[in-house]
Each structure stands twice: as C-alpha cells, then as structure tokens.
Design a protein around this nucleic acid. Structure first.
Lengths: 126, 126
DNA sequence: CCGTATCCCCGGAGATACTG
DNA sequence: CAGTATCTCCGGGGATACGG
C-alpha cells in the first residue's frame, strides 16, 4: 500500500481509522480475556495466567504490556522475594467493560442463530 | 475450567467462550469495515471495495463469504452481463451495528487519552 | 464485473531455557 | 514468581493471473 496519494495528514492517525485502533486491541483474543479476567479486581500474574486457559507466559506478558501502555491497566510490583506483581484495571479500563459487555450480550443473544446459519450455509454448500 | 482431559471437543467449538466466537469476527479488521460499509444500504462488490481503502479483492471476497455464512449479510447475484453482485446487511447484521457503534463511541471518546498514555509510556520507557 | 487459484513472504505466537 | 531471549514453525494475506 503506497502512501503516495494520501493527503490526510493527521499525525496521530492510526491509518485513518480510529475505530481500528481500539478494535485491534479489543479484537485481540488475549487482550479481551485479560480485561475480562481483571474485571472483578486486581490479580497477580500467575493467577491471571491460570485463569486464562491456554495462554503462554510470553503472550500474557506481551498482552499486559500493551494494555498497560494504553493506560487500561496498572502494573504494581511488590519487591518481595520472590517478586510479586499485580495488575488492575484503571478507571479508563473499567469503562471498556461496558461496551465490551454489550457485545458479549449480543453474542450470547445471537450465538445460536449464527451457528444455525453456518450449519445451513455449510449444508447447502457441499 | 478444569476439564481434566478435554478431548478436543468440536470444531464449532468457541472453546467454551461464545464471546470469542463473535469477537473473532468483530475483531477482524476487514469484517468490521465491511459491516460499517454496508450500514447505509446495499452495495455492489466493486463499490464496497473502493470504499474500503486497502482491501484486496481476495480479502473482500473472503470476508463477505464469512459474513454471509454467519447470516449477517445477503449476497444477491444479478445475472446481467457483466455479472453484478450486491451485498446488504440482514436484520441480524443490522443489530450488530449498535454494539459496534457503542465501541466506536468509546474509541472516539478515549482515543486521545490512549494515545497520550502511549506517548507517556514510550517516553519514560527508553 | 466478480470470483478463484497460486505463489510467496512476513510476522505472530508456541516451546524452551535462562535471569532477577 | 515474573519476565526476557531465541528459535522455529505456520498460516494470514498481498500480488498476480486466469475463468465465468
């Protein structure tokens, strides 16, 4: 994709689509699970990890860093031995729960319909 | 989640998380743009393609098929010459617009804050 | 105009091993 | 316990060319 013809010169542009900016985060499998995992309060790294079935240490760290960078969660290090780190949603992060929940509701409400549609589509599509 | 030896359930799995099922679609860059592109009414393939900056023909086709399979859009072929195909949101697809819009609003409302957070994080993180 | 088939590359993400 | 560093593999998706 060449930028040769894009006169749109907002510097903080996100490729012209602010929606994507958040959706990239929200759409990310692990990000959502991490946010949801933190919605009931602070958690330590290892507990969070256990609560998110299937995530690797690497991915959890990476995901949490992103969320921290965006200001959606805080990271608190307790200099005990062994190290102990807790994560918690920020005020900003908490506000994300609501629209996320709206989507979750939509999902639950329409899940069966969608699965049925898929089945129907697949069966007539052999 | 202690599913001792979960023997690789099914392929319409969602791995026990219905949320993911939809988020996989919603989180998909092109899916969202396609849905948004159709929110004002039916469109032909090529118009849709032009309206979504940067999408390849391959990706658009693929994305539209998925959405059709899920029953979120309809595909109508007019056997004219040359072929002409129009896509349109279904009733179900229309209902997705609302929660999607909620997220979009959140995005717009918090975009600056997030970008600021990122900048702050990056500057103290050299 | 609309869609499919091929080739190919780049980066995401798992496994593993190691430090503070 | 929490995090980083490699290595590697796999597949998403762009470019391209062709068919209906």
């Amino acid at each position: 994709m060449s930028q040769a013809d894009a006169p749109e010169t907002r510097s903080d542009d996100t490729s012209g689509c602010p929606l994507r900016d958040i959706l990239d985060r929200v759409g990310d499998k692990w990000s959502v699970l991490a946010i949801v995992g933190l919605k009931d309060g602070r958690m330590r790294f290892s507990d969070l990890r256990r609560s998110i079935e299937g995530i690797s240490q690497r991915m959890l760290t990476q995901t949490l860093r992103q969320l921290e960078r965006d200001g959606l969660i805080t990271r608190t290090v307790y200099p005990s031995v062994p190290a102990r780190v807790e994560y918690e949603l920020t005020a900003l992060g908490v506000t994300l729960i609501e629209p996320l929940t709206a989507l979750a509701r939509w999902s639950e409400n329409n899940r069966r319909a969608i699965l049925a549609n898929r089945a129907a589509y697949d069966s007539r599509e052999i």
